[in-house]
Nucleic acid binder design. Structure first.
Lengths: 196, 196, 196, 196
DNA sequence: CATGAATGAGTCTTCATTCAT
DNA sequence: TATGAATGAAGACTCATTCAT
């Protein structure tokens, strides 16, 4: 009886208003680890120690929850994309490559989910448009940097860069081999971190 | 009664022994189009006009069916990989690149499923080892060709080639943009179809 | 912050004390339109822009709310039943028939709910006794009028009248055909608006 | 163990292929007794001692089950409507009235459900069209009979007859008062079983 | 080989209701 | 009075799988 009371207080102090965010966080992790379809809403609630009603109070459906997670992913990528400092383009390009490599390692689960959603027929449409937008945006940034660095054909070079970058992503997110990731990032630097 | 009998004969003549193959074919298509989890065994049976009992007679579980499909996919890739003629290495390399491009377009559903399985946590383990094996094998073939063509560093070059190839795959299978596919294959040729 | 404060004042000025009545009104409308079971308390609250807590503050349960609505319906019928003026019985009878016809059209939703409650097993008991009471009361009024008008057998005539009236109600509230309603009311007048 | 075996045999002997019909029968009864919304599919299955999967195997949704029940109801009415013998019109009219009265008593649950569906907003559309069709058909039959019996205005008379009949139905199905039912049927006969 | 009725655990979702604030 | 987050039992429905025939 007393312990119940204490638990209630603890809950009200710690978890107040955090339920919605907690759901997104845990659900993202679980979707990434076990897949969207293999993760039941009940399992999410159980892990969070909340009622299933609460999940549907905040997110009216499982898909809405997924959308909230996708929003989070997209916003994370936005942050990475906008982490540019207006310094020397070579330094900046190196920085971008490193930042991506670090993020791939650090936020791996999050990128795993990204890939799973992108190549799963029934979730692809939820994320594809935004992925393409980011790719375009990213290629544009590379284009500007390569141009500044004196590339004779920044359009072609940034295209190659982007295809290579996607290759690195796809490889790493398939097998999670960090050595290969580092090797391919080094190759990327070797290829484009030059003065044309 | 008679018509039933006739139907049975027709069935036995045309479809006998094909059931198992048919199931694999249709299931592969449906898994590719709608996803493994979103495709029920009942839906497969309905499309094939067979009873669900028959499906489970041939494949004792849905996962066994998936394994059969994966075997089919792997064997298809084997065929593509072994389509080599011992002619001029430049011609052969060009042929390989074209063959991949053609296959991506022609067998798109099949590659779609390949990617879906590879990036879905609960199916990844079923396919990853074989994918890595193929990648290694493929890189080896490219290595040999580039070496014959006089590459100074065929190890590095074949590595780059493979990453780029994966990038092409991942891009095309995300958005199905054929123009981009052709453009990036052309770039691949431009980069490696040279005499070193 | 200020605007929130202003909103609160506005609310307190306009809507204070009306909440309970508003709930009854809107709930009645929604029950009539979509059915009691198909109308959630949450939906009612949303339409009224109030919290679900408030609804349950005023009505401790959904059924209590339904009871309040039934009271409203019954009181409405009382008003119709008591709209008698002690004038010529023929005029009064005609007036009653017209009043019913007008009410059926004007308060249709309200009568729709009345019928839905009466023929639904789990709500029937809430309303049946009062419906029967009204029917009796109504027949008595008709009895008196027909007697005054010289009917030789006002008991039989008022019985027929009441059955016919119920038939009009049941027909109109099933298909909402106004032409049929008018035609059958005209028949009712033709039959009973005579000097015996 | 043995008893289980025996039960299985009993089941296979008695219930084979009857499941679908049994579901319709029991569901109709339960819908009539407790209302469509208040009767869960689980409750139906429990009463029948079958798995919930089986219900949805035969009827892909609860509403489809309801439709099957409505079909049954409609077919029952069809039978009643077509129980005409080409004898003397007065005898036939009397027979029809009696048949309806008997059916109201004997098949009460079934008519209760009929009314519940007709006056419930979300089920009305499933049944209204067919109810109107039957009413029209019925009135036409009465029209022909009254005409044969020498009615000067069979159109008006059959109209009155139908409204009165609906009144009888609506009254009886509201309160289940058999005395009143008999009295009003007698009135119906008194009014129309005459030689004009 | 082939059928299809039957199972039962599992899935997402709804909803009246409570309660701390 | 009023809020709205939280509950939890119940709801309809799905689906891989089994088995008697």
């Amino acid at each position: 009886m007393l312990s119940q009371f204490i638990m209630k207080i603890e809950k009200s102090v710690k978890e107040k208003k955090n339920a919605k965010k907690d759901i997104v966080q845990i659900a993202m992790k679980m979707f990434a680890e076990n897949g969207y379809h293999k993760t039941s809403t009940a399992a999410i609630c159980k892990k969070l120690n909340i009622s299933s009603g609460l999940l549907f109070y905040h997110f009216s459906s499982k898909e809405k929850l997924l959308n909230a997670i996708i929003d989070l992913i997209i916003s994370k990528i936005d942050i990475i994309l906008n982490q540019t400092s207006n310094s020397d383009p070579r330094i900046e390009l190196e920085y971008i490559i490193d930042a991506f490599m670090v993020s791939l390692k650090k936020d791996r689960q999050f990128w795993d989910l990204y890939m799973a959603l992108l190549y799963q027929p029934d979730t692809k449409e939820l994320i594809l448009a935004r992925v393409l937008e980011h790719s375009k945006q990213f290629r544009r940034a590379i284009y500007e940097l390569l141009k500044k660095m004196g590339s004779k054909n920044p359009s072609i070079d940034s295209f190659d860069f982007e295809v290579f970058r996607v290759g690195i992503f796809a490889s790493y997110l398939a097998n999670h081999d960090e050595q290969l990731l580092e090797k391919s990032c080094k190759r990327l630097k070797n290829k484009y971190l030059i003065n044309y």
